[in-house]
């Protein structure tokens, strides 16, 4: 994206320029590109084990960012995004294993399933407000799990294995996984960033700040929410398909695991809701915590839960919110800065 400075054409204003990129943003964008290149090049520098945990990290990032888009911008607090991860995962297994379609093509074909399922789901749930909506999404995910447990097409409760992956060498699989990781981040994080900087961006931020007022200014809140719900379903579906492809095995219990909702909520709340930076910070914290303290089992989850609660009560903007208050250096600037030659920079939309 090369949107740097656009002339500002409104009459009656001092001569200002709108700047959409900042030095910190340029550094972050460079680092992001470097990370993307490193991801693609993984088979040449990382072991299969390393690739596996980086893939998991990418899935966490993607799912968390989708939840951020839903809860942070659209005000849709879903605890059932695993429904779409599992649906896409199962679709991949059926397409590749049962129908013999190339698994790497099937990853993308399988995205049609969450996209199609998201439409009736949304129309079923969108009349529910706040916590009722959340419970509804959870119920939907449970229904998906129960259906898959009883559906012969997906081998019912016994689950499926992706045996066709045997046809590919370990190196080929690593290359594919690396490319899929890069695609996943490009679509979910890059896509969100693009969306927030697009002409929908201001409407989305308005909706985040105050949905009622946004609707009263002509923002089509209902339509935007629907689009975001479907987009998040597809994003989660892509993460699910890639995750279960790497796992080589899928069962109803793993496919529709509510753990995904927990981790997305933790990452976004602790990192900082309504920002991409927060998702990156939250994911790193969660990932490190998971590696170090995962062995403590239930008590570890209790600590994560308490941390989320504390942030929700006392620091609602999360870690990124605290950082942004102190230093004005966004990694992914979405606002417009107006540069006045006489006065320097002033004011910005976060």
């Amino acid at each position: 994206m090369t949107m740097t400075a656009v002339p500002f054409a409104d009459a009656g204003l001092p001569a200002v320029r709108v700047q959409r990129q900042t030095p910190s943003g340029r550094i972050a964008l460079t680092l992001a590109l470097a990370a993307l290149v490193a991801l693609v090049a993984m088979p040449w520098w990382a072991s299969t084990g390393t690739i596996r945990w980086i893939l998991e990290l990418c899935c966490y990032l993607a799912v968390a960012q989708m939840w951020n888009l839903l809860a942070g911008y659209a005000g849709l607090v879903s605890v059932g995004q695993q429904a779409f991860m599992g649906a896409a995962g199962y679709a991949l297994f059926v397409l590749a294993q049962t129908y013999g379609i190339n698994p790497f093509l099937a990853v993308f074909l399988s995205l049609l399933v969450p996209a199609v399922l998201a439409v009736p789901t949304y129309f079923l749930l969108h009349r529910l407000e706040g916590p009722y909506f959340s419970i509804g999404t959870w119920v939907v995910a449970e229904v998906f799990r129960l259906v898959s447990t009883n559906l012969p097409l997906v081998n019912s409760g016994a689950g499926m294995s992706l045996r066709v992956m045997k046809d590919y060498s370990a190196f080929e699989r690593n290359v594919a996984m690396s490319l899929l990781c890069a695609t996943l981040l490009l679509v979910t994080l890059g896509g969100s960033y693009w969306l927030l900087r697009s002409r929908f961006g201001l409407a989305l931020i308005a909706m985040r700040d105050n949905p009622v007022a946004a609707a009263s200014q002509g923002v089509q809140v209902g339509r935007l929410r629907f689009l975001i719900y479907v987009a998040a379903a597809v994003g989660c579906g892509l993460a699910g398909a890639i995750y279960f492809m790497a796992q080589l095995r899928i069962t109803p219990g793993s496919a529709f695991d509510p753990m995904w909702a927990n981790l997305a909520i933790f990452i976004v709340m602790v990192g900082g809701i309504g920002s991409i930076e927060g998702v990156l910070i939250g994911t790193l914290i969660f990932f490190v915590a998971d590696r170090w303290f995962g062995e403590y089992g239930a008590s570890y989850f209790v600590v994560l839960g308490l941390m989320t609660l504390a942030v929700a009560l006392y620091a609602r903007t999360g870690i990124w919110g605290a950082i942004a208050r102190r230093w004005d250096a966004p990694w992914f600037p979405i606002g417009r800065r107006l540069i006045d030659p006489q006065q320097g920079t002033k004011g910005e939309t976060r």
């Binding site: 201001l202 409407a203 931020i205 308005a206 985040r208 700040d209 105050n210 009622v212 007022a213 946004a214 609707a215 009263s216 200014q217 002509g218 923002v219 089509q220 809140v221 209902g222 606002g335 417009r336 107006l338 004011g347 910005e348 939309t349 976060r350």
Partner: peptide, 30 residues
């Protein structure tokens, strides 16, 4: 409400309900 705006009805809501994350300019720009 968004259709009502298109039809020519606008509201100055109670408590103002501005977009708090934005500058004055961006609030108007929405």
């Amino acid at each position: 409400p968004d259709r009502m705006v298109q039809k020519g009805v606008a509201i100055v809501p109670e408590g103002r309900r501005l977009f708090t994350g934005m500058s004055v300019e961006d609030n108007l720009r929405v």
